[in-house]
Simulated assay, not measured.
Amino acid sequence: MGPSKGSPHARRSHSALPDERLAPGAARLATRHAGRFSVETVQRLLADSYLRLAATAHVTTHLVVLAERFTAERLDALAHVQGALGVGLPRGLFVCNHNAGHSQLAAALLQHRAAGRVTVSSAGTHPGPGIQPYIAQVLTEAGADPTGAFPKPLTDEIVRAADIVITMGCGDACPIVPGRRYLDWPVPDPDGAPIAVVRQIRDDIDTRITGLLASLPNT
Score class of each variant (00 low, 15 high):
residue 59 V to D: 13
residue 59 V to L: 10
residue 59 V to R: 13
residue 60 T to R: 10
residue 60 T to A: 04
residue 60 T to P: 01
residue 60 T to E: 09
residue 61 T to R: 09
residue 61 T to G: 06
residue 63 L to N: 07
residue 64 V to K: 09
residue 65 V to Q: 15
residue 65 V to F: 14
residue 65 V to T: 13
residue 66 L to H: 10
residue 66 L to A: 08
residue 67 A to F: 15
residue 67 A to N: 11
residue 68 E to S: 13
residue 68 E to W: 13
residue 70 F to D: 10
residue 71 T to D: 06
residue 71 T to N: 06
residue 73 E to L: 12
residue 74 R to Y: 15
residue 74 R to M: 15
residue 74 R to D: 12
residue 75 L to H: 09
residue 75 L to N: 05
residue 77 A to F: 03
residue 77 A to H: 05
residue 77 A to N: 08
residue 78 L to P: 00
residue 79 A to C: 07
residue 79 A to E: 11
residue 80 H to K: 13
residue 81 V to Y: 01
residue 81 V to A: 02
residue 83 G to C: 07
residue 85 L to A: 14
residue 85 L to T: 02
residue 85 L to C: 02
residue 86 G to D: 05
residue 86 G to V: 04
residue 87 V to K: 14
residue 88 G to D: 06
residue 88 G to S: 11
residue 90 P to S: 12
residue 90 P to Y: 09
residue 91 R to E: 02
residue 92 G to I: 14
residue 93 L to P: 06
residue 94 F to W: 03
residue 94 F to Q: 00
residue 94 F to R: 00
residue 98 H to G: 14
residue 99 N to S: 15
residue 100 A to R: 08
residue 100 A to L: 06
residue 101 G to A: 14
residue 101 G to H: 08
residue 101 G to M: 12
residue 101 G to K: 08
residue 103 S to V: 02
residue 105 L to G: 01
residue 106 A to K: 00
residue 106 A to R: 00
residue 106 A to C: 03
residue 106 A to W: 00
residue 106 A to G: 01
residue 106 A to N: 02
residue 107 A to T: 02
residue 107 A to M: 04
residue 109 L to R: 11
residue 109 L to N: 06
residue 110 L to R: 05
residue 112 H to N: 12
residue 112 H to S: 11
residue 113 R to H: 08
residue 113 R to P: 01
residue 114 A to R: 08
residue 114 A to I: 12
residue 115 A to C: 10
residue 115 A to G: 11
residue 116 G to V: 11
residue 118 V to K: 06
residue 118 V to A: 12
residue 119 T to M: 07
residue 120 V to N: 08
residue 121 S to R: 09
residue 121 S to A: 12
residue 121 S to F: 10
residue 122 S to L: 02
residue 122 S to M: 03
residue 122 S to R: 01
residue 123 A to K: 00
residue 124 G to C: 00
residue 124 G to I: 00
residue 125 T to W: 05
residue 125 T to Q: 06
residue 125 T to N: 07
residue 125 T to V: 15
residue 127 P to I: 02
residue 128 G to C: 04
residue 128 G to L: 03
residue 129 P to I: 03
residue 130 G to L: 15
residue 131 I to Q: 14
residue 131 I to N: 09
residue 132 Q to M: 07
residue 132 Q to G: 04
residue 133 P to R: 14
residue 134 Y to D: 14
residue 135 I to Q: 01
residue 137 Q to C: 04
residue 138 V to P: 07
residue 138 V to T: 13
residue 139 L to D: 05
residue 139 L to Q: 01
residue 140 T to V: 12
residue 140 T to P: 10
residue 140 T to Y: 11
residue 140 T to C: 11
residue 144 A to L: 05
residue 144 A to S: 14
residue 145 D to V: 09
residue 145 D to Q: 09
residue 145 D to Y: 15
residue 145 D to E: 15
residue 146 P to H: 09
residue 146 P to C: 13
residue 146 P to G: 09
residue 147 T to K: 12
residue 148 G to M: 08
residue 148 G to K: 10
residue 148 G to C: 07
residue 148 G to Y: 13
residue 149 A to H: 03
residue 149 A to S: 14
residue 150 F to Y: 12
residue 154 L to N: 01
residue 155 T to D: 14
residue 156 D to L: 12
residue 157 E to H: 09
